[in-house]
Simulated assay, not measured.
Amino acid sequence: MVIPKAGDNWPSMANSCWGDSSILVPWADYLARGRIEVLGNQYDSMKRFMKAAKWWSSFLAISPTDRYIWRFPFHFGDWAAPEGNVRDWLKKGKWVGTAYFANSCQIMSQIAKILGHKDDQIYYQNLREKIIHAYRKVFTDGEGTLKQEFQTGYVLPLHFNMTSGRETNQMTDHLVQLIEENGNHLTTGFTGTPYILFALSDHGKLEEAYRLLLQDTCPSWLYEVKAGGTTIWERWDALRPDGTVNIGDLSGAKSDEESGGGMVSFNHYANGAVGDWLYKRLLGLEPLSGGYKTFKVAPKIGGNITWAKGSTITPYGPIHVYWEIKNGMFHIKVDVPVSTSCQLILPNRKSMTLMSGKHDIQEHTF
């Protein structure tokens, strides 16, 4: 759970999400910077993690399907979710672990292809399919309804592309229903919050995504802004509306599981991962290959937001994107670095390829 390992003598044990960082971080670095050598240097470590995840998934399995459900030895589950307590978060571990296992298989297959390891590419893709089949059989009714419903339980398979056809529509509808039943609030923990807006906007629920983004009562991102937060908090309710710090019950009258253990940090980035959605969907900027050699700009407009501006530094130079809506027209400016190309998809679905240079385009919104 911590690299480099320090402070304890426990044996190394693979666990989901936190452990999956051994794959997610090098992959993110590759997409941002294009450094294939990072993937090569970390590849053996990634494979050891995947081998451990597979071993723990088969541990004490009593059926062929169970061999692909990752329960052991320990998962944080739906950690720091605004509903339930520590014990409830941990109980969600097998849903979270199995979904993250499938996602890491997909990334490993892509990495193996980039590095030229064709056998590994096929192995991880086949393993992913077995995990997805197990997830569907064990956790759902086979048609898109979870046997135990919670928001992260729907978010992960949707965002990790583990669903298809009618099943996808059902899961999306159930996710929206759970959000609406909670007064248009999210109830996701660390493992689901980074992906909930993607799960909505990428499956036909863009306005619902914006409604969630712009929610300003607790739990929400804008609640923290309204409360004066200048950093992201560990818990959505770390500061109460009256300005007092919510440290839980530290009197000793309740267990840590019941009180949250006084778990309060005002500089705890996890829920700030919403920034990924702000860049990739609101602004529309997303790499299509390592180092933004090819990239996409496809803003998804909504929520009565009329402009967005952002940039990122790539190995080829800076990419700048600015768009605004005015008088029924969509105006976008994109700076494309030398030696790169951009796939621009406008809100009216018109698509074009932009080569290096400064581009200034106007189109009717729809």
Rank of each mutant, 00 (worst) to 15 (best):
residue 94 K to P: 01
residue 130 K to P: 03
residue 74 F to H: 15
residue 134 A to L: 06
residue 123 Y to R: 15
residue 326 K to R: 13
residue 18 W to M: 14
residue 120 D to P: 06
residue 225 V to G: 04
residue 306 T to D: 00
residue 259 S to K: 02
residue 191 T to C: 11
residue 363 E to V: 15
residue 305 I to Y: 08
residue 233 W to N: 03
residue 321 V to A: 02
residue 302 G to P: 07
residue 265 S to Y: 11
residue 356 S to G: 10
residue 175 L to A: 02
residue 114 I to A: 06
residue 328 G to H: 03
residue 205 K to C: 10
residue 89 W to P: 03
residue 300 K to I: 11
residue 86 V to E: 08
residue 207 E to S: 12
residue 127 L to V: 05
residue 164 S to F: 09
residue 330 F to P: 02
residue 73 P to D: 04
residue 312 T to L: 10
residue 230 T to S: 12
residue 143 E to A: 10
residue 234 E to D: 12
residue 141 D to W: 03
residue 110 Q to T: 08
residue 293 K to C: 07
residue 175 L to W: 07
residue 349 R to L: 07
residue 255 S to C: 02
residue 151 Q to I: 05
residue 248 G to N: 09
residue 182 N to V: 06
residue 315 P to K: 05
residue 272 G to Y: 09
residue 311 S to I: 02
residue 128 R to L: 07
residue 173 D to A: 15
residue 156 L to H: 01
residue 297 V to T: 13
residue 42 Q to L: 08
residue 60 L to W: 07
residue 19 G to H: 05
residue 69 I to K: 01
residue 259 S to A: 13
residue 90 L to Y: 11
residue 228 G to L: 08
residue 118 K to T: 14
residue 49 F to M: 14
residue 239 L to P: 03
residue 170 Q to A: 11
residue 327 N to S: 11
residue 51 K to P: 01
residue 95 W to S: 03
residue 18 W to A: 13
residue 61 A to I: 07
residue 291 G to K: 14
residue 290 G to T: 00
residue 290 G to R: 08
residue 148 Q to G: 00
residue 163 T to D: 02
residue 36 I to G: 00
residue 30 Y to R: 03
residue 158 L to I: 12
residue 205 K to F: 02
residue 121 Q to N: 06
residue 353 T to G: 00
residue 337 P to T: 15
residue 289 S to Q: 07
residue 159 H to L: 04
residue 86 V to N: 07
residue 180 E to C: 01
residue 54 K to Q: 04
residue 331 H to V: 00
residue 26 P to S: 13
residue 356 S to L: 00
residue 206 L to E: 15
residue 110 Q to P: 01
residue 71 R to L: 02
residue 12 S to C: 05
residue 360 D to P: 02
residue 364 H to L: 10
residue 321 V to F: 07
residue 38 V to G: 04
residue 212 L to V: 07
residue 272 G to W: 09
residue 355 M to P: 03
residue 182 N to D: 15
residue 194 P to S: 03
residue 319 I to N: 03
residue 330 F to V: 09
